[in-house]
Design a protein around this nucleic acid. Sequence first.
DNA 1: AAGAGTATATGTACTTCTTACACATTGTGT
DNA 2: ACACAATGTGTAAGAAGTACATATACTCTT
Lengths: 240, 240
Amino acid sequence: MAKLKSAALEKSSHLEYFNIAVSVDCVIFAYAEKALKVLLIQSDLEEFAGMYSLLGDLVRPDEDLDEASYRVLRERTDLHDVYLEQVHTFGNLNRHPSGRVITTAYYSLINLKNNKLQLTHNELSWHDVNKVRKLAFDHKQILDTCLQRLREKVLEQPIVFNLLPEKFSLRELQDLYEAILGVELDRRNFRKRIILKDWLIDLNEMEVDVPHRPGKLYKLRPSLKRNGKLSVKSEQKLTA
Amino acid sequence: MAKLKSAALEKSSHLEYFNIAVSVDCVIFAYAEKALKVLLIQSDLEEFAGMYSLLGDLVRPDEDLDEASYRVLRERTDLHDVYLEQVHTFGNLNRHPSGRVITTAYYSLINLKNNKLQLTHNELSWHDVNKVRKLAFDHKQILDTCLQRLREKVLEQPIVFNLLPEKFSLRELQDLYEAILGVELDRRNFRKRIILKDWLIDLNEMEVDVPHRPGKLYKLRPSLKRNGKLSVKSEQKLTA
DNA sequence: AAGAGTATATGTACTTCTTACACATTGTGT
DNA sequence: ACACAATGTGTAAGAAGTACATATACTCTT
C-alpha cells in the first residue's frame, strides 16, 4: 500500500481498482456419526446447477473481514461463540464466473449437539468430508486447504473440543482425532499423550447408556477454551 | 459466495459492494550482517509522514492475487524467481486511513548477493527486523505475523536457502537460523540435525579468504529448490 | 619462524519422546 | 451365567534431542 495516496483512492483509480469484490467463505466442520462433516449449500448459480458450495457472502463495506465470517456463521447456524480461523485467501482471476471476486477462507468448528437448527435452512446439508468430490467455484480446493490446516492445528492446539459436547469420553475424543486425521491411533498411546498434554479434567463421572463397560467422562480444562474471538495471543505450544 | 448471483454482481449491489479495495503487501526478507533484514519504504501518506511501510500495491482487476505480489517484488527488486508465501489477510475496517482496503500479506526470501539494485529505488532501505519498532498502517502487525510464520516454516521446510548464496558453509547456515529464530544453537547438534535432514550436498570445496581455518562448502540439494511459484504440493515434512 | 588467535570438525552419554504390544475388568444383553 | 464389547493399564525397545571437550587448520602478528 505504500504507493497508494489518499488522492488515488478518491479519484480516477476509483472505478478501476474498486472492481474487485471481496467475499468470505466458511468451511463449517462438525462431528457426527464418527465422521468429520462439512456444511454445504446447494449452489444457486446456474453455472453450478446441482452442485454444492461452501457458505459465504460478500464482505460489507462497513464490517471487518473477520466479522463478515462471523456473520455468515451466525446467519446460517444461529451460533455465536464459534471457533473460527482464517486460512487462506483465494484470488485467481477466474475463480468466480460472474466477476472478479477474491475470497478469504475460514474454517470453524461447531458442536452439532448445541445446534438444533440444521433444518431451519433447508438448502443446507452436512457432508462427510471424505466423500465430497466436487464443489462449485474453487470450493473443493478451499475445503482441502482448510482440512489440511485443521489437521496440522489439532496436533498442536486444543481446538477439537469445539466439535464435542461439554462432557466426553477418551474414546469419543480418539474417534474424533481419527476422523480428522484419517488414521487409526493406538489406544494406550493416545491416552498417554492426551493425558500428558494436561488439557483435560477428569469429571469423576461415567458414561451412561452404553452397551458395554462405561468410560470415564472428561471436559476441557476451562482455561483452554477457545471458542469465540479470533487472534489468539501467547499460544501455548501444546506438543512441546 | 453461495448467495451471490450473477445479477447481484451487475446491479444495485455493485456500487455498494465494490467499495472495498484489495491490496497485497510484501514482507521482503534478506540476510545480511548476520541479521534478518526487511525491506521498507518511506510512507508517502501524510498521515504516516516519516514512517516506514511495507511494499505493497493495489491488486489490478486483471491479475491474480499471487501475481500481484510477484509484480510488487519484480517492480521493487527486479528479481524474478523469488520464494513467496501468502500468510494472512488483514481486513479491519480502519486499517487504512484513506478508505476501505483489505490487504493480503506475503513474505518473500531473497538473496542480497544476487541483487545489486538496492539503490535504484532510493526510498527503499533494509532494516534489521529486531529493530523495527513502528510502521505505517498495521504493517508492524503484518511484519510480526510473517516473521512468526517464517520461524515456524524454517523448522520444517528447506526454505532458508533462498536467503543464502549458492555456496555456503555450515557456520553461515547456522548463523542464519540463529538470526531468524532469535536463539543460539549448539554447533554440534545443529550440524548433526542438518546433515540428517539430507538437504545438503557437500561440494568438496573450502571457504577462501577467511581469517581462520576454512570450512567446507555446501549447496542445497537441487531437487529441493523452491524459489519460483507458490503452492507447493506434496510437501516433504522435513522435521519428520 | 614461532606463537597466539579463531573457527572447524567430530563422538558419546543422558534424557526424553515415540512406538509396539496383551490381559484383566466392568458393564449390557440374552 | 455366559457371551459380548469396550475400558483401563505398563513396559521394553528404538528414535530423537540435549549437553558437552579436544584436536586440527588456517591467518595474523611479532
